[in-house]
Simulated assay, not measured.
Amino acid sequence: MLSRRLLRIKAVKALYAHFKSDSDSLISSEKNLMFSIDKTYELYHQLLWLIVDVATVAENKIELGRKKHLPTEQERNPNTKFIDNRVIAALRNSERLTDYLTSHKLGWVRYPELVKHLYKAMTASDYYREYMASPSRSFKEDQKLIEDFYTYTVDNCEELENVVEEQSIFWADDVDFANIMVLRTLANMKVSQDEVPLLPEYKNEDDKAFVKELFRHTLVHYKEYFDYIGRFTKNWDVERIAFMDNLIMAATMSELINFPSIPVKVTLDEFIEIAKYYSTPGSSTFINGILDKVVEALREEGKIAKSGRGLLDK
């Protein structure tokens, strides 16, 4: 399922797009937000299929070797451990996965060079050599190889990042989040399962409601939050404060005030972390300092009211 951090990032990006486009339609901007989230869920399925296409490259290579007029001993009797990998077989035979890919027109058919590149990178790795050299053929070993592929080969592939962004502008910066979902899926797989345990898009309905409400509250009350934050930035050159900084602080205020079940520390930590990647150098330090003052003032005014076990005064 998509993490709360990703949902916060999506909300901030949608807010940024709304204001920069001078849109006056909350409904239209919210639809774009939800579409962007759906696209990340598509990317999860797209990435999950990637190892299947890499295995197809290996299968074709073995078949070509066998068909040679004078094949070598290795070509006549190739090591088929990788192409016989049971995790790959489970993914290939998953009706839920293949149906989803088909219905959403997803796949890597148009990017054979990328798939070949990943195959070469994988076969050149130590984790692959160790796997192929081991005489055992346990499901756990099969599982670990695929996890290593996504952890070390996919996660460090710049070509993949470029291809993904070419496929959809909504996938920019989403590979890491989708890859984490892939790894969770792989970790949940068991040899006795008939189907791949695909993750749901949201953990629960609360998460879906959370991202919508965060977006709406921040958008509707942005001017109010902006003016409130302005009380604590009087000694700063307003023109030099990045728009994204103000946007992140407004979204933080919205969450602090409107979501009583989320601890203050969680909200602050999440948005400060987002600022490190989506605003200017030094923004996270600046935002941290301003938000400390904002939280103190909101508490004094009784505008932060946390409820639930373990949340009082946090």
Rank of each mutant, 00 (worst) to 15 (best):
T98N: 13
K61P: 00
M244D: 14
R184W: 06
H104F: 07
K203W: 09
I88P: 05
F243S: 07
F139N: 05
Y128D: 01
S103I: 03
N204R: 04
G65K: 08
D24H: 10
I229F: 03
L114H: 06
W171V: 06
M34N: 13
L186H: 03
L15M: 09
E161T: 09
S261P: 00
I37N: 07
H217W: 00
Y202V: 09
Y277F: 11
T285Q: 10
T80I: 13
I229W: 05
L2K: 14
D245L: 00
D142L: 07
D313E: 08
F170R: 08
E301A: 15
R110E: 15
S94R: 05
I262M: 09
P263F: 08
E158V: 08
V163Q: 03
S28K: 12
G310V: 03
L256E: 11
D155E: 10
D126K: 11
K212H: 04
P260Y: 07
V264A: 05
L219W: 08
E141K: 14
V12W: 12
R309T: 10
N288D: 13
R76H: 05
Q74F: 07
S261H: 11
I257K: 14
F82T: 07
T185H: 03
E224S: 12
D38V: 05
I27Q: 12
A55F: 00
D126Y: 03
N246W: 01
L198E: 11
V220L: 08
L50E: 03
S134K: 14
L186S: 07
I83L: 03
E159Q: 14
S125I: 04
P200H: 10
S307Q: 14
K68L: 11
V191C: 00
I62G: 00
D24Q: 10
R129T: 09
I37P: 03
V211N: 03
D99K: 13
P281N: 08
Y278I: 05
A250G: 04
L33A: 12
N235G: 15
L214H: 04
R66E: 09
I180K: 05
N85D: 01
F35E: 13
S25L: 00
I37T: 04
N246D: 00
R92N: 09
E213L: 04
V191S: 07
M181C: 11
L186G: 06
A124D: 14
E165F: 00
H104E: 07
T280H: 06
